[in-house]
């Protein structure tokens, strides 16, 4: 997988192969995914607020895994025909993180699954504003938005999932959960001798990475280092 470190204000790229983008300072990525391709896109964003414009042409099988650390990742996605799109977007943040996600389906036979997972570590904002729009031209579209935020501190977390449907022929759904860790999970880990603090770290890793499918070890390493997994299990 080709890797590009993006540290410019703007990147415009035509994508016709698997790609790993490590974003450090960029403000806008404009990516055009060419037709008739099966593509994996890995995006890591560190300490930045990034907007990703994605234009998908026809007959595309696209999987995106994005991880934001102390970052915001906003998506603006336009979809034509015969496309499978799976996006797993995970954010862990000590800072305010406002993530606006707009998906516009304007074609036929599209299957779109969007997962947003967030860990709000401190007393800051973590928002997922999701707008799934299915136009009147769409036929046979399936669209699902699934969001989860775990509040570790007393942060202000919000999920606003909108489905704007202008056609009769669509399967659309959304789910949203904001809360703390399940006590059942914490107790189980504690019953194995694992401290409460370390148990939370394991569960954070689980929430951020469980749906990821691409080169999982890259993000596993990144998340483990950020939250301190592999260190003292008794802290």
């Amino acid at each position: 997988m080709n890797k590009i470190i993006v540290d410019t204000d703007k990147l415009v790229q035509e994508v016709n192969d698997d790609l790993y983008l490590e974003v450090i300072e960029s403000k806008t990525l404009s990516l055009k995914i060419v037709s008739n391709k099966k593509i994996k896109l890995l995006i890591k964003v560190l300490n930045s607020d990034v907007k990703i414009n994605l234009e998908l042409l026809n007959n595309i099988n696209l999987a995106i895994n994005s991880l934001g650390i102390n970052s915001s990742i906003s998506y603006d996605i336009k979809i034509k025909d015969n496309t499978n799109l799976l996006v797993v977007d995970s954010i862990i943040s000590n800072n305010d993180s406002i993530n606006n996600i707009n998906i516009c389906d304007d074609g036929s036979n599209n299957n779109i699954e969007f997962y947003t997972n967030g860990i709000n570590l401190k007393n800051k904002k973590l928002y997922f504003n999701l707008n799934g729009m299915v136009s009147k031209n769409s036929i046979n579209t399936s669209l699902s938005e699934n969001s989860k935020i775990i509040n570790v501190g007393d942060g202000d977390s919000k999920i606003i999932p909108n489905l704007i449907i202008n056609t009769k022929e669509v399967i659309a759904s959304h789910s949203a959960y904001i809360g703390t860790f399940k006590s059942e999970d914490l107790y189980y880990l504690a019953s194995r001798g694992i401290s409460l603090k370390y148990a939370k770290k394991l569960l954070i890793k689980s929430i951020l990475l469980s749906k990821m499918t691409i080169e999982k070890e890259i993000f596993t390493r990144e998340v483990s280092e950020f939250i301190g997994i592999g260190g003292d299990t008794n802290e």
Binding site: Y188, R192, G193, I194, S206, I207, S210, M212
Partner: peptide, 23 residues
């Protein structure tokens, strides 16, 4: 446990290693 939990994203090997380390 009668009904043990599942944790996606954390392997069995990793969980047992964390338990052993903590002890």
């Amino acid at each position: 446990y009668q009904n043990p939990i599942s944790i996606d994203g954390v392997t069995t090997s990793e969980l047992i290693k964390a338990s052993m380390d903590s002890k």
